[in-house]
Amino acid sequence: MKTDDSKNKQSLQELIDTKDFVEHISVDCAIFGFDEGIMKVLLLKYHDLDLWSLPGGFVFNDEDLDDAASRVLYERTLLKDVFLSQFHTFGKIDRTENNVHRILLKNKAIEVSKDHWIFQRFITVGYCSLIDFTLVDSFPGALNETIAWFEVNKLPKMAFDHEEIIQRGLEHIRKDIDTQIVASKLLPEKFTMKELQTVYETVLGEELRRNNFQRKILALNTLERLEKFYDGSANKAPYLYRFADKK
């Protein structure tokens, strides 16, 4: 029976032997969620290295970019049909100079030519997603040994330019917050305005005035007001809402 280390070496060898990838193009997914009011991002740790990265991968020759991003997300989280936003292309000439692949291959005693495609310059297309992190059943890929959630303001040592990708992705989530919240499935089908405001405050990282927030949200015409929510307390019962496109 093969050990985990030998299986990993075999998987890594199969990856670098693949000739079906588009040259110099990759995708990286900044996958955000939140836990108890704290925004987090999903990261992977490389084997034998104290270095973390975003879930990412290469693009097959017969694969659209969007499909590649969805595949990478599924391989890392087992989540399907997740709303993904393509938000930026990262192409600085030195973005892959700290190429961890050389160290990984050396540690596994895998020899490849100096001009192998995995060592060459890569331009990566960034995708981001806001999801319910409790639904993620994550597992590591061929290059990684650990996968975990980290607070966006307390990141570990990152590979390549992935810290910049995370910050750009978070900015995109916040700018497109109305669409992201609708698509994220962070709320139950029926929710109160207070619950919705809590989600907004967590993503934006700031407190919002209740009256101003309610006025802004209702003006979007994305909510359908339902019955009142009675929880047995002496407080005034709030209305329940759902997104208008949800049945």
Rank of each mutant, 00 (worst) to 15 (best):
Met1Glu: 11
Lys2Gly: 07
Asp5Thr: 13
Ser6Met: 10
Asn8Ser: 14
Asn8Asp: 10
Asn8Thr: 15
Gln10Ser: 13
Ser11Ala: 15
Lys19Arg: 14
Lys19Cys: 06
Val27Ile: 13
Val27Cys: 05
Ile31Glu: 00
Gly33Arg: 00
Glu36Arg: 13
Met39Ser: 03
Lys40Met: 14
Asp48Trp: 05
Leu49His: 08
Gly57Ile: 08
Phe58Leu: 08
Phe60Arg: 11
Asp62Pro: 01
Glu63Asn: 05
Leu65Lys: 03
Asp66Lys: 10
Ser70Met: 10
Arg76Val: 13
Thr77Ile: 06
Thr77Asp: 01
Leu79Asn: 05
Lys80Trp: 03
Phe83Leu: 03
Leu84Trp: 03
Gln86Pro: 07
Gln86Cys: 13
Thr89Met: 05
Lys92Glu: 11
Asp94Arg: 03
Thr96Glu: 02
Glu97Cys: 06
Glu97Leu: 10
Val100Asp: 01
His101Phe: 15
Ile103Trp: 06
Lys106Glu: 15
Asn107Asp: 07
Asn107Leu: 09
Ala109Pro: 02
Val112Phe: 12
Ser113Trp: 07
Ser113Leu: 07
Lys114Glu: 15
His116Pro: 00
His116Lys: 07
Gln120Asp: 12
Gln120Ser: 06
Arg121Cys: 01
Phe122Pro: 00
Val125Gln: 09
Gly126Leu: 05
Phe133Gln: 11
Ser138His: 14
Ser138Tyr: 12
Phe139Val: 11
Pro140Met: 08
Pro140Thr: 13
Gly141Ala: 10
Gly141Met: 09
Trp149Gln: 03
Glu151Cys: 11
Val152Pro: 00
Val152Gly: 00
Lys154Ala: 15
Lys157Leu: 15
Phe160Tyr: 14
Ile166Trp: 00
Arg168Trp: 06
Arg168Asn: 13
Leu170Trp: 05
Lys175Gly: 07
Thr179Phe: 07
Thr179His: 06
Ile181Gly: 00
Val182Gly: 01
Thr192Arg: 11
Lys194Val: 08
Lys194Gly: 06
Tyr200Met: 07
Thr202Glu: 03
Leu204Pro: 03
Leu204Thr: 06
Glu207Ala: 12
Arg210Val: 11
Phe213Lys: 10
Phe213Glu: 09
Gln214Tyr: 09
Lys216Ile: 02
Lys216Met: 08
Leu220Thr: 06
Thr222Tyr: 05
Glu224Met: 12
Arg225Ala: 05
Arg225Tyr: 08
Arg225Lys: 15
Phe229Arg: 07
Tyr230Thr: 07
Asp231Asn: 15
Ala234His: 14
Asn235Arg: 14
Lys236Ser: 14
Ala237Met: 12
Pro238Leu: 05
Leu240Trp: 04
Ala244Asp: 11
Lys247Glu: 13
